[in-house]
Amino acid sequence: MAGLKYEEVYLHAYDSVSQARQGLQSYFKFYNERRPHSSLDGKTPDSVYFNSLPLQKAA
């Protein structure tokens, strides 16, 4: 993922593995939940995925 390297990893000098893990978790949350994607017509991956799941009917 070129975006991950350029938008997160190369911009931060992590002092530990736990800091890197925390930074990557934040980036993935942003990437999937808030960052619009041109290939998805400006939608986020989460919105595309969760809106495509079939609705479950109540019992």
Rank of each mutant, 00 (worst) to 15 (best):
Y10S: 08
P36A: 01
A59E: 08
L53I: 07
L55E: 13
F28V: 04
P36Q: 03
L24G: 05
R34D: 10
Y6G: 14
T44E: 03
H12K: 15
R34V: 00
L24V: 11
L24I: 08
S16N: 10
Q22N: 14
T44Q: 06
A13I: 06
L40T: 03
G42P: 12
K29L: 03
Q56M: 04
E7V: 03
R34K: 11
R34Y: 02
K5M: 07
S16R: 09
N51Q: 08
A13S: 15
R35A: 02
D15R: 14
V9I: 14
S52I: 00
S47I: 00
A59T: 07
V48D: 09
V48T: 05
S39H: 02
Q19D: 14
A58Q: 11
T44D: 05
P45S: 02
L40R: 08
R34M: 04
L40S: 08
A58W: 04
M1H: 08
Y27L: 05
L11S: 06
S47F: 00
H37G: 04
L4C: 12
Y14L: 06
H37A: 02
V17S: 14
L4S: 06
S38M: 03
V9D: 05
Y31K: 06
Y31F: 07
G23C: 07
D46M: 03
K29S: 05
L11T: 07
F50H: 12
Q22P: 10
H37F: 01
K5T: 03
